[in-house]
Design a binder for these strands. Structure first.
Lengths: 200, 200
DNA sequence: TGTTTTTTTTACCATTTGGTCAAAGCAAGG
DNA sequence: CCTTGCTTTGACCAAATGGTAAAAAAAACA
């Protein structure tokens, strides 16, 4: 076998799924291999048969998530209607906060601590994409199709407002009116916010 | 002595200052008593002479910060001009992100992990203040002095956008145009954002 | 079925870490 | 100087934790 058998694939993804659970809840240092292994339904030495160590699990998990995470921004389409493109982007980001809160918190945890295990990765893929899209936003502003403002801060504000609902879920849940769908009302609020902000 | 001598006060605050450094950078589990003690210029047993344990240091640190942290929201004045009050609040929050990024990241870390050591505290002080201020915002909206929207999400969005600059500093720094004052431009961007959003 | 290869487990190790303890240092009053 | 009470430290401990080694178990193959 070449190390990619069906069993291997199944176990590797079971480990990564378990690692997402555990790392996102306790952070890198707070998570233990025993916890992850147990959540993946195997023993610690067995987990270490599939990954060379704790950090390797964490790093691969992060790397596999970056793509998924940046996809909505990648889809911001230069040929579409500016306002609709941005509204769609915001809607997708809120949806991701709802459907993948663990992934969001995993990133948040890593970045809050200074991204010690993601530094180079961030500065490549992410920076390239960020520069491309801020340039696009600038162009739209130059053409008068959306209101003029700092495009970098515009993206920051979208990230902040949308990811907040996943990253600070504990606080949100505590403070929100019970009985309402937080993500539904958040989507409406943010849609209105960005329409008001961006309409020239 | 009654346990509050000058030496005691000096050492306790040295410990808390060191703990802020270390906890905000590595999280609760990632920080070690040795690190904190060493940063405070003393030995670990000496630190444990002043605090009963690691968690006690962490909890007291958090409790002492909550007050400082909520102060700007407390100052939202029912008798002031609504728009100016909110602009002042946003400006103060940005300023706090700039001047107390460690405090911000300490909270972020705790909340991202589900606030396991702050639950009850949050649900009391914070919730009470939050409800009071959303009621105030609602009143202002009823009176037609600011645009109508969900007041809870309005506060969430202010927290998200302002604290983002402290909590995600690593990312912000990596992506921002070098040579510009991030906090200065952020303050301008957010001022403009909330003026546009809130003007009836 | 017998052999080889992959997978899993049991037992273990070294280090880290939160915390204890008893002894030593030290300031203040007598 | 000597006692008394507060402060600091060096030595130590038990538990947790990342990781290893070798053998058992299970598949895969011939």
């Amino acid at each position: 076998m070449d190390g990619n058998s069906r069993v291997q694939k199944r176990n590797r993804s079971a480990i990564l799924a378990a690692a997402l659970d555990v790392f996102s809840q306790h952070g890198y240092r707070g998570a233990t291999l025993d916890q992850i292994a147990s959540a993946a339904g195997m023993s610690k030495p067995n987990l270490l048969y599939y990954f060379p160590g704790k950090e390797a699990v964490f790093v691969q998990l992060l790397h596999e998530l970056v793509d998924k995470w940046l996809e909505p921004l990648r889809q911001l389409n230069a040929d579409g209607d500016p306002l609709e493109e941005i509204r769609t982007y915001v809607r997708r980001k809120v949806q991701m906060s709802q459907e993948m809160p663990q992934e969001s918190r995993l990133f948040a945890n890593e970045i809050v601590q200074g991204a010690p295990r993601m530094g180079t990765y961030l500065s490549q893929d992410l920076k390239e994409l960020f520069d491309e899209k801020t340039a696009l936003l600038s162009k739209w502003m130059d053409e008068g199709r959306i209101a003029r403002m700092d495009p970098q801060h515009l993206i920051f504000s979208i990230w902040a407002t949308t990811q907040h609902y996943a990253d600070f879920e504990a606080q949100i849940h505590l403070l929100s009116d019970p009985g309402t769908d937080v993500f539904q009302s958040a989507a409406e609020f943010l849609d209105n916010l960005y329409v008001r902000l961006l309409t020239p």
